[in-house]
């Protein structure tokens, strides 16, 4: 068990180093300090969205959050509108963005855990409601969309060579790993995913556990969108779209069981780094978007097959 828990992140890190070495051989300068810092920034965002999927997938019941992209866009646009370019308003913008994400996640959670609508359908529907609503809202209100200088500085700059977003991500990851694996709440979440009937009959309010899981996903996604606004400089429609599928991919590669019950965020974080390095390597050696997608898909498939193999080997 312990070997498995540690084995996955180590395997992913080894692969990452291998890719970095290959990159350096093919393109000298690939692992320069600036490059590494840049990739860590990108990986931080992917890792945050991967955390959303980790939590809802662990809660079971075919858990999945296809609305992370739309909620991120919502968080970015709301945050930017409230900040209105001012540093003083930045914390308020962040707070409102996270609040909106929690609310959207709550809608997902109620639809899934109370009304029993499958997660795939619920989150896809909410995603489309938010996307559509944002188009209407933006065209009517024309809100401010620029990030405040403070936010731009925080998400873009490095502190002693380490990007500040990456530090922020590391802190969030540490809290997440501790919550998911070393707290009573983490056990409730995973057991609810593994066997909701036993969990419920043993005194878990499984409905609440699942609603909270989707709320966390929504809150983190909105915060991720808010940070993205700083990273790119401004909020725009479709800001978070790229993260919908990639977040699921890194969760699966990181070792989160699609059937629920397991939330190894350490693995997911490593997977986010690996996939970021993979994409940047492929881009650097001029493999186009279609080629990258093929390689992305193959990587996902091979890890899923590895999971099946390990599962069978254990029984």
């Amino acid at each position: 068990m312990t070997a498995l828990r540690l084995g996955r992140p180590l395997l992913l890190l080894a692969l990452t180093l291998l890719l970095l070495a290959a990159g350096e051989v093919l393109l000298p300068g690939f692992i320069g300090p600036g490059q590494i810092a840049n990739q860590l920034k990108i990986a931080s965002f992917l890792g945050l969205f991967g955390l959303c999927q980790t939590v809802v997938m662990a809660a079971g019941g075919q858990g999945l959050d296809l609305s992370v992209g739309a909620i991120a866009t919502l968080g970015g646009i709301l945050g930017a509108a409230l900040m209105n370019g001012s540093n003083a308003m930045t914390p308020i913008g962040a707070g409102v963005a996270i609040g909106a994400g929690l609310a959207a996640g709550c809608v997902n959670g109620v639809g899934i855990a109370v009304l029993g609508v499958p997660p795939l359908v619920t989150t896809l529907a909410l995603s489309s409601v938010i996307d559509g609503g944002l188009i209407v809202g933006v065209s009517l209100a024309h809100p401010a969309n620029g990030a405040s200088p403070g936010l731009v500085a925080m998400t873009g700059r490095s502190f002693h060579g380490i990007p500040t977003v990456a530090v922020l991500w590391a802190v969030i990851a540490a809290i997440a790993i501790w919550l998911l694996s070393r707290s009573a709440w983490g056990r409730r979440l995973c057991r609810t995913g593994a066997n909701p009937i036993t969990a419920r009959l043993s005194g878990t309010d499984t409905t609440r556990v699942r609603i909270v899981a989707y709320m966390m996903s929504g809150g983190i996604a909105a915060f991720g969108g808010f940070l993205l606004t700083g990273y790119v400089g401004q909020a725009f429609l479709g800001l978070g779209n790229a993260y919908v599928l990639t977040s699921i991919v890194v969760a699966a590669i990181g070792g989160v069981a699609l059937a629920g019950g397991r939330a190894p965020y350490g693995g997911v974080a490593c997977a986010a780094i690996l996939m970021t390095v993979l994409v940047s390597l492929l881009t650097a050696i001029n493999i186009g978007e279609s080629g990258r997608q093929v390689i992305f898909g193959l990587t996902l498939l091979s890890f899923l097959m590895l999971d099946r193999y390990l599962m069978r080997a254990r029984h």
């Binding site: 009573a184 709440w185 983490g186 409730r188 005194g203």
Partner: peptide, 9 residues
């Protein structure tokens, strides 16, 4: 499941 402090193990 009944633990009053869910952040604690």
């Amino acid at each position: 499941a009944l633990a009053p402090r869910p952040w604690h193990l």
